[in-house]
Design a protein around this nucleic acid. Structure first.
Length: 269
DNA sequence: ACTATGTCCTGCGAGC
DNA sequence: TGCTCGCAGGACATAG
């Protein structure tokens, strides 16, 4: 569900609310759970640990843990998949359907992981490193190299997490619109000027979305239960048949690599 | 090594 | 009202 701006918003909200809190106990749901690490390992790594920070890497949420003595411990990594959410709530609250993990915190609150579609993943690792580059940090030359000689459509390349970490379907479409590039273009066919525009557009759209708390399509809310507002700024995503905000030509929707892709046939070349 | 395709899940809204 | 169908913000395995 969430892409970089939504994950960033969630991580910031969690950092604000639960940094410094201590995990007293851990409950992990039964049967086919979305656990990448064994349940016993996750429980052992979390129980009794202090959450020193919460931050985002790619589409992953990283919980930096400390042991009681204050030394750095393993990291708890949460990937929300399409429909995952992390909720901070009072202990009495009835368990929502599809709750897969509950952490009791020393402050009396609970941190819950809920995920109906179960594409989300929980894991524990010493030091997590995202496979791809951070789109908000990558320099232009490194960005350009990523697409060098790639025959795949630029849209697919943007979604490839081992190239760039954090770009998903919405922001790929939105960045390509702003850069005036059609999603089906072969990545290697982009000119240097187009690559510059794409690099800039991607950073701009991601930053703007973070500012607005992400895009709330369907039921996304952040750690405080707040909706994002970037969906109001979408120029092509989810706007099939509606007039392009620049030239009024109806926005087209096509399927690339099984993902719906939206673009303006007039503005994007 | 790179690329295209299918699959994992549940829920929701559109259309009949 | 109730059913079926298609679709959903992701990532991985597999096959070519």
């Amino acid at each position: 569900m969430p892409e970089l701006p939504e994950v960033e918003t969630i991580a910031r909200g969690l950092a604000k609310r639960i940094s410094g809190d201590v995990i007293e106990s851990v409950w992990l749901g039964s049967k086919p759970e979305p656990l990448k690490s064994p349940a016993s390992e996750i429980e052992a790594a979390l129980r009794g640990k202090r959450i020193s920070t919460v931050r985002r890497l790619g589409k992953h949420i990283v919980f930096d843990l400390e042991s009681a003595s204050g030394s750095a411990s393993a990291q708890w990594i949460v990937h929300l998949g399409m429909t995952g959410s992390l909720l901070v709530c009072p202990p009495g609250l009835e368990l929502e359907k599809h709750t897969h993990a509950v952490l009791q915190l020393a402050s009396g609150r609970e941190l819950r992981f809920v995920d109906p579609r179960r594409f989300g993943r929980l894991s524990v690792i010493e030091k997590f490193e995202a496979p791809g580059a951070e789109p908000l940090q990558i320099a232009f030359d490194d960005f350009a190299v990523l697409f060098h000689k790639r025959k795949t459509p630029i849209k697919s390349a943007l979604l490839n997490q081992s190239l760039l970490s954090g770009v998903g379907n919405i922001y790929a479409d939105e960045a390509l619109f702003r850069a005036r590039i059609r999603p089906r273009r072969r990545a290697a066919s982009l000119t240097r000027d187009e690559l510059r525009r794409l690099h800039q557009a991607l950073k701009t759209v991601l930053k703007e979305a973070i500012k607005l708390g992400g895009s709330s399509v369907s039921d996304y809310v952040d750690a405080d239960g707040e909706e994002g507002f970037f969906q109001l700024k979408h120029r092509v995503y989810g706007r099939e048949g509606k007039p392009c905000r620049i030239c009024k030509t109806p926005v087209k929707r096509i399927v690339i690599a099984g993902r719906s892709s939206h673009y303006c046939p007039r503005c994007q070349k």
